[in-house]
Design a binder for these strands. Structure first.
Length: 494
RNA sequence: GCGGGGCUAGUCUAAUGGUAGGACAGAAGCUUCCCAAGCUUCUAACGCGGGUUCGAUUCCCGCGCCCCGCACCA
């Protein structure tokens, strides 16, 4: 059980993360990562990259600009759909989206109107506040994208990208050529995205600058299933909450083939399984803390034909919260850029010529890191961060039991050799118990202690974080032993 | 953006219109040496700005930030 304050306080105290620009009173919606936070985050990113690029030998990482010209975001739909016109009641202060107010009154779609046009329509239709019947104030525009003026005259309009995905779509044809015209083709970006959130809240859950890890898989819908055959022989079940029951803290355990029978394409289910394995097997998230949550038609973005959120239960955030999504975006994005750029995006693949469809595996990195911290947080007699060993900022600590009799020298030499292979940390201050406790708080899985016996050739002890158990390992075998413990091949606990 | 609550060392907190105290953490030393032992010493805070006042961390106003609810979340 970890409260929000528990996680944030530990994060601040131990160098994981904290609010940005605190020196100047803070900066809402922005967070900085400290030395341990960066290590943790990078290990999460490495595991993500290894896992999802590993799905195919035609999946690669690319990197694209964080600033995009207006035309590209116009074509993607973000300039129009990321801009809301808000109207606030002068009496009760309730805010509404202008287009929603009009649609409620006229029952026809009212998109793309300017604030002045919305004001005029509200006057004509005599619309009043749905909440208190008060008079509505003037409409004002609110754009979720950060606008930029490029060049000395700021004549070229641009925006900070609201998602990394567009960078992939803009480079689709270049990579399709460079990767010698094969489908499926996967292009991933781990990078920053920016949204001018109205009210950023709950730490790194909703930020104005955040990290996304997204894999866009381009495919031919006619043949994709052949490339990713769904293997149901293991009888794996997928944890799903349907749209109607999302507010309940539960999930169904549904066999993969049964999910296909409900109408989802087998290639989609294949990727649900891949994502679930990433969380359960690689990240070691407790099974009951993971689920997919279906979004119904109203909640989905208009271009997403199938959309399940990836959710992790986090005590600090009050239950299941979204950390990613699996989105079938069809050919919407490439078609949009085809129209916007007047450049054909169709490619010839096998017998067919087509604009490829896109399956997007999208992850909020900061949200995932927070979830990892939340789930790892364990406070009883002692405070332990039970991180999966591979994610821990420090892999192995080295301590001299006492600071005399040549023990520190021996410990330092062991430290010097271990740090060649692992992120290692040396500490000789305070009692041995205090040093173990410090390592417990940042989740260091293994601590090597050099004692008197070490000087007599009896090796050093390796102490495991969660069990506090120790084994004695010959000095020459320490590095290999740590590597095996890290991979899970062996364990301190018999 | 609206409403409510809040902001004191790194963290958690106490008190006060007149010298801001503690605990834990941190540093140094002594001592001990396998799980935050003990002793000594030290470092370190009133979110920012304005007002009232002889004097404001305290009262008032504005701003910032955090939390909760509403709205928003392509």
């Amino acid at each position: 059980m970890a409260s929000y304050d528990d996680v944030m306080s530990l994060s601040v105290r131990r160098g994981f993360l904290w609010p940005a620009a605190e020196l100047y009173g803070g900066f809402g919606g922005f967070y900085d990562y400290g030395h341990n936070g960066v290590l943790l985050r990078r290990r999460w990113e490495d595991l993500w990259t290894e896992t999802f690029l590993g799905l195919s030998d035609n999946y690669y990482l690319i990197d694209t600009t964080t600033i995009l010209p207006e035309a590209a975001l116009k074509a993607s739909g973000h300039v129009d759909h990321f801009t809301d016109v808000l109207v606030t009641c002068t009496r009760c202060g309730e805010s509404y989206r202008g287009d929603h107010l009009l649609e409620a009154a006229t029952h026809v779609e009212e998109e793309g109107l300017t604030p002045a046009e919305i004001d005029a329509r509200i006057r004509d239709l005599k619309i009043r506040c749905p909440n208190c019947k008060g008079e509505l104030g003037p409409a004002r525009e609110f754009n979720m994208m950060f606008p930029l003026g490029i060049g000395p005259t700021a004549k070229d309009r641009a925006y900070l990208r609201p998602e990394t995905a567009q960078g992939v779509y803009l480079n689709f044809k270049r990579e399709f050529e460079a990767l010698r015209r094969k489908l499926p083709m996967g292009l991933a970006i781990v990078g920053r995205a920016y949204r001018n959130e109205i009210s950023p809240r709950q730490g790194t859950y909703r930020m104005r600058e955040f990290l996304q890890a997204e894999l866009q898989i381009f495919f031919d819908p006619a043949t994709f299933a052949d490339f990713v055959p769904l293997d149901t022989s293991a009888g794996e079940r997928i944890r799903i909450a349907w749209a109607a029951e999302k507010n309940e803290p539960t999930a169904h355990e549904i066999a993969a083939e049964a999910v296909v029978e409900r109408g989802l394409p087998s290639w989609y289910v294949y990727h649900l399984l891949a994502v679930q394995r990433f969380y359960l097997a690689a990240l070691r998230i407790p099974r009951d803390a993971f689920r997919f949550a279906e979004l119904d038609e109203k909640e989905r973005a208009f271009y997403n034909k199938i959309h399940f959120d990836i959710q992790i239960r986090q005590e600090s955030l009050g239950g299941f919260r979204e950390v990613g999504g699996v989105h079938y975006r069809t050919d919407h994005d490439l078609k949009g850029h085809e129209a916007g750029s007047h450049t054909k995006q169709a490619v010839t693949f096998g017998a067919s010529k087509l604009v490829p469809h896109v399956l997007e595996l999208s992850f909020g990195v900061d949200r995932n890191v927070w979830a990892v911290l939340d789930l790892a947080f364990a406070k009883g007699d002692r405070l332990v961060l039970r991180l999966p060993p591979r994610l821990a900022p420090v892999t192995v600590a080295v301590f001299p039991l006492v600071n005399k009799a040549g023990i520190p020298e021996r410990a330092e030499s062991i430290f010097a050799s271990l740090r060649k292979r692992f992120t290692a940390f040396y500490d000789d201050s305070g009692s041995i118990g205090r040093r173990y406790a410090r390592m417990d708080e940042i989740g260091t899985p293994f601590s090597v202690t050099v004692d008197h016996e070490s000087l007599e050739g009896n090796g050093a002890t390796v102490r495991e974080r969660d069990s506090q158990k120790q084994i004695r390992v010959p000095e020459a075998e320490l590095a290999d032993a740590i590597a095996k413990l890290l991979s899970g091949e062996t364990s301190v606990v018999p």
